[in-house]
Design a protein around this nucleic acid. Structure first.
Lengths: 244, 244
DNA sequence: CGCTTGTTTGACGCTAATCAATCGTTGTGG
DNA sequence: CCACAACGATTGATTAGCGTCAAACAAGCG
């Protein structure tokens, strides 16, 4: 593994200085690797949650199936993300699968314990990240509960690109979107049909361009206005974090 | 303050053993008290977020106003809750106000720092609580994005009573609900009109009884079935928590 | 008593769901 | 290389549920 810096370190380094000691603490999390083909199930809801995962490569989604057969996508996961905080409960509350070929680094809850014991600073950061996810979930709720189909789709696309930019600073305004319209709809409470129509609308308004599964955001400002989008990823108050 | 045990300690004690040392650490958080009349604003979104709060008495709600004048209620807060984790960002992302007369104990972010430095175990618990809030937010998203008005209202009422039971073990199946139907609607993405009709439906089905602002859940099981409700509050895996 | 605030009820319209047919692309096997 | 199957995207017609508007009703309060 003569590798460039791990995505996880890049991601965390956005917020606090990851020195050698912390980096060593984190490498433990990425010691093991598991490869997944496209559309492979990682775990099912109800499974015992032994592991969390760092995403090393590829896209993954967590989702739950409703009693009536419909599906709800809870979250998409990209390189640098940590999956499975929810697993601190007894069981996995959701299914997890890949939507492209990819690599995960599984690690156990006990490794978290080590972080909490050895680094108050890193603990505070993990806590902050978890809180941020809550804020993002609230934003999504706002979009889903209060906005029309076009605005919801705009929100979805913007949130994706902002998240991808965290670990990929070379990301411009174009990205590959390896999800079906049904999966997109399951993320924002729409049917595949409505997603298709909303896409047509955004394309017609010259806000978005599509070629195959590649999405280009032509006018980010207008898109942000359309759904009242606010960036939750770049700024975080770390001033109160304890030193190690 | 010749007081019974603090609500915060009761709440946290559900999950880990709060010994004298930890209790002392926590009393700092409840050192100061501030009284609020009904319908008093605690802070506005955009305010500098110096403080977090422990709810000592009364109901509070956090909310944001949309550009078109509509409002969205993010969360209701009850005695024992900690408000303001979101404030670890630079600004308050939401408004906060009381819906009854109440008492808050403000404390600063620096007090959190102390907890993270002095107690890995408590850090892990706070982290877990934050993650739980995420899971709850996901459940709410499921209800709001995928269910009809009656099911959404059922979800709202059930989630309330389950949360009230955390700190009030004498809570049966009846509780006082100090919110207008507009506020309820703003919590679950409905108009006041639809909330009214959904209430009529639940009452007609003998699932709920209303007298003034008091709500009695007559048939919790049917309500849970109606909205596929799952309790997220009573079980939590604390086995991986570090010792202090 | 009259004002204010919240709830209820009815009529109507709009948005997205549903149902269904068609089109396009990809991958497979003859 | 072509035929066909499988899957996803698109488009159209229809429907259902909730929003909107508006009026009536109820309860508290000065």
């Amino acid at each position: 593994m003569v590798n460039k810096k791990s995505c996880l370190v890049i991601m965390l380094n956005n917020y606090i200085d990851i020195d050698d000691r912390l980096e060593k603490l984190l490498t433990i999390l990425e010691k093991n690797e598991r490869y997944y083909a496209e559309d492979a199930v990682v775990h099912y809801s109800g499974d015992e949650s032994k592991n969390l995962y760092v995403v090393k490569e590829g896209w993954f989604i967590s989702y739950t199936d409703l009693y009536d057969g419909r599906r709800m996508v809870i979250k998409t996961h990209h390189p640098g993300d940590i999956i499975g905080f929810e697993g601190i409960y007894h069981e996995q509350p959701a299914d997890l699968k890949s939507t492209t070929a990819g690599v995960l680094c599984p690690f156990s809850k006990q490794n978290l314990d080590e972080i909490f014991r050895c680094s108050p600073k890193l603990s505070a950061l993990l806590f902050s990240i978890s809180v941020r996810e809550q804020i993002v979930a609230t934003d999504r709720l706002k979009a889903v509960s209060r906005m029309g189909a076009q605005a919801r789709l705009a929100y979805f696309l913007l949130d994706l690109i902002f998240r991808l930019r965290i670990t990929n600073s070379s990301m411009t305004n174009e990205f590959h979107l390896p999800l079906t319209q049904t999966e997109i709809g399951d993320s924002i409470g729409l049917t595949n049909v409505s997603v298709s129509r909303a896409f047509s609308y955004l394309v017609g308004m010259q806000l978005v361009k599509r070629t195959n599964a590649s999405i280009k955001l032509l006018d980010e400002l207008s898109l942000m206005k359309l759904c009242d989008y606010e960036d939750r990823y770049t700024k975080m108050d770390t001033s109160w974090f304890p030193c190690d």
